[in-house]
Computed example of a mutant assay.
Amino acid sequence: MVQRLAQLWLGLLLVMLASACANDPPPAPPAPVAGASETVRSSYVLAPGDRLRITVFSEDRLSGEFGVTTTGQISFPLIGNLDVAGKTLADVQSMIRTRLADGYVNDPRVTAEFVTFRPFFVLGEVARPGQFPYADGLTLRQAIASAGGFTYRAKRDRVFIQLPGDTKEYTVDLEAESNRLVKPGEIIRVGERFF
């Protein structure tokens, strides 16, 4: 009887391990290089949750801070709602400059800069899972620390990351890539260990 129970237990354990291995997402794409935040900023595309400061020189009433809405727009004085989701800061500057030059302002000079990026998320086996404000140069280890660190059940050698706009999770080896830079909007999930 004891031998039969041991065999059942071992069989169940093997099924669980095989299932866990079969469900592992593919490896993560290459991580951004540490210190590359200026490159990340120049290629960064806007999405809901981002906040911008737009300045139109010599036009104080047109300058200010604008948040990207859940529909991916900002509401700009005189020209109305602008679709900015998926666009870079340079695209937004150009769009506003073009629209203002079309009968509103002579030779508009427009600059746009980030005030805040959209938050990132840490889920799973951490002390305080949730949404956290993004900071430039944030590493994977720092992101997990901002969520209170690992719980005692956490699998500490790897995490799962869902990139903004993607539906898949990627496996990241935490020991090899603990200094990987986190991007705004990423979802980091810490899995549970089996033993």
Rank of each mutant, 00 (worst) to 15 (best):
R189D: 13
D24Y: 09
Y170V: 13
P184V: 03
I188W: 12
S19I: 12
M95F: 05
R141W: 13
K155R: 15
V122A: 08
V172R: 11
L123V: 09
L17T: 13
R51I: 10
V190N: 10
R156Q: 13
K155S: 07
N81L: 12
L10E: 14
M95Y: 05
Q7C: 09
G86C: 02
K183P: 00
F194W: 14
Y104W: 12
D102H: 07
T55S: 04
P77Q: 05
L17E: 00
V56W: 04
L46D: 04
E175K: 03
L78G: 02
G64V: 13
S37E: 13
D157G: 05
L181M: 12
F195I: 15
I161P: 04
T116G: 08
L100T: 06
D102A: 15
I96T: 10
E125R: 14
S63A: 06
F150G: 00
M16K: 09
R51W: 01
A20N: 12
G165W: 07
V56R: 06
P184Q: 02
M1D: 10
G49K: 03
V45K: 01
L13D: 00
D91T: 03
D91K: 00
A135S: 15
A20H: 12
L89V: 03
T69S: 10
E125I: 12
I161M: 08
Y152N: 14
I79M: 09
I187F: 06
D102L: 10
F66C: 05
G103R: 04
A36D: 04
A176M: 11
Q7K: 04
L13P: 00
L138W: 03
L5C: 12
R189L: 08
V110P: 09
N106I: 15
A28M: 08
D166I: 01
P25W: 04
I96L: 02
T167Y: 06
T88Q: 04
P133L: 04
R128Q: 14
Y104V: 07
S42D: 10
L12P: 00
G72H: 02
T39G: 09
T69C: 01
P30V: 07
A31Q: 11
E38C: 00
P108Y: 02
F57N: 07
S178L: 05
D136S: 15
T70E: 14
T171I: 14
G148P: 05
V56E: 04
G148V: 02
S19G: 15
S43M: 05
P25C: 06
V182N: 08
L78Q: 06
R156M: 12
D102Y: 00
M1P: 12
F132I: 03
V126Y: 06
